[in-house]
Computed example of a mutant assay.
Amino acid sequence: MNLEMFNQIASITDSLYLSSAAAVKPDRIRTVGITHIINCTLEIPNLNLPTIESIQIHVEDAPHARLCVYFDRCADKINQVRHRGGRTLVHCVAGVSRSASLCIAYLMKYHRMKLSDAYHHVKKRRPVIRPNAGFWRQLIDYEQRLFGRNSVRMIQSGIGWIPDVYKDEAKNMVWFQSRRS
């Protein structure tokens, strides 16, 4: 895997970008033309630039975390920024799970993409994404609410419950449960 990908700002649409926190640097933000930042971390403060509006979504990257309560709020904000001619960067610590899930939710709501299509669209632009199983369950519920049907389902695998879009990459993996003394 190319570790440099973790430090890149990926263009998801003309007005939506996705990255890790490490990529959020004033010069890079200006170069891309970012006007708004959605920071979905607990531990990293917002970039404080006078020309950038930042909001922080305090959520853990854990399967039990309720990211779904932010799907509409963040998607609506990204859409408002787009209509005003701005550009939004969504980031979490690694740009893999929380931020990717919010970008997928936006694509479902405002680009009317099925969950599977939204996932593949974001994955193509930022190959390191991998929302956790709990966020997948929430995205599946969100797709059901938006469209009345699902394009992704959770399946049992050798590494536990996973979305069926992970099936090929997980087929040779084995989950080892730690033993406690």
Rank of each mutant, 00 (worst) to 15 (best):
residue 20 S to M: 13
residue 20 S to D: 12
residue 20 S to K: 13
residue 21 A to Q: 15
residue 21 A to K: 14
residue 21 A to E: 15
residue 23 A to H: 14
residue 23 A to N: 14
residue 23 A to R: 13
residue 23 A to I: 13
residue 23 A to L: 14
residue 24 V to F: 11
residue 24 V to S: 11
residue 24 V to Q: 10
residue 25 K to A: 12
residue 25 K to S: 12
residue 26 P to L: 12
residue 26 P to Y: 13
residue 26 P to Q: 13
residue 27 D to I: 14
residue 27 D to Y: 15
residue 28 R to I: 13
residue 28 R to W: 12
residue 28 R to S: 15
residue 28 R to A: 15
residue 28 R to F: 14
residue 29 I to N: 09
residue 29 I to K: 09
residue 29 I to W: 09
residue 29 I to Y: 09
residue 29 I to G: 08
residue 30 R to F: 12
residue 30 R to H: 13
residue 30 R to V: 11
residue 30 R to Q: 14
residue 31 T to Q: 15
residue 31 T to H: 15
residue 31 T to L: 15
residue 32 V to Y: 12
residue 32 V to T: 12
residue 32 V to E: 10
residue 33 G to W: 10
residue 33 G to D: 09
residue 33 G to A: 10
residue 33 G to C: 09
residue 34 I to Q: 08
residue 35 T to K: 07
residue 35 T to N: 03
residue 35 T to S: 10
residue 35 T to D: 02
residue 36 H to C: 08
residue 36 H to W: 01
residue 38 I to Q: 00
residue 38 I to H: 00
residue 38 I to L: 08
residue 39 N to Y: 08
residue 39 N to E: 02
residue 39 N to T: 05
residue 40 C to F: 04
residue 40 C to H: 04
residue 40 C to S: 10
residue 40 C to V: 10
residue 40 C to W: 03
residue 41 T to H: 04
residue 41 T to P: 01
residue 41 T to K: 07
residue 42 L to G: 06
residue 42 L to T: 10
residue 42 L to A: 04
residue 43 E to V: 08
residue 43 E to I: 07
residue 45 P to F: 05
residue 45 P to D: 08
residue 45 P to Y: 05
residue 45 P to T: 07
residue 46 N to T: 06
residue 46 N to A: 02
residue 47 L to Q: 04
residue 47 L to Y: 03
residue 47 L to E: 06
residue 47 L to P: 02
residue 48 N to T: 07
residue 48 N to A: 10
residue 49 L to E: 03
residue 49 L to W: 01
residue 49 L to F: 02
residue 49 L to N: 04
residue 49 L to I: 04
residue 49 L to A: 07
residue 50 P to M: 05
residue 50 P to T: 04
residue 50 P to C: 00
residue 50 P to Y: 05
residue 51 T to K: 09
residue 51 T to E: 11
residue 51 T to I: 06
residue 51 T to G: 06
residue 51 T to C: 08
residue 52 I to L: 01
residue 52 I to M: 00
residue 52 I to H: 00
residue 52 I to R: 02
residue 53 E to I: 06
residue 54 S to R: 03
residue 54 S to E: 05
residue 54 S to G: 03
residue 55 I to F: 01
residue 56 Q to W: 02
residue 56 Q to T: 01
residue 56 Q to D: 01
residue 56 Q to F: 01
residue 56 Q to L: 05
residue 57 I to V: 07
residue 57 I to D: 00
residue 57 I to H: 07
residue 57 I to R: 01
residue 57 I to K: 03
residue 57 I to A: 03
residue 57 I to L: 06
residue 58 H to K: 10
residue 58 H to F: 09
residue 58 H to A: 07
residue 58 H to M: 03
residue 59 V to R: 00
residue 59 V to N: 03
residue 59 V to C: 04
residue 60 E to A: 11
residue 60 E to W: 09
residue 60 E to P: 01
residue 61 D to E: 02
residue 61 D to S: 02
residue 61 D to A: 06
residue 61 D to I: 02
residue 61 D to Y: 02
residue 62 A to C: 11
residue 62 A to K: 12
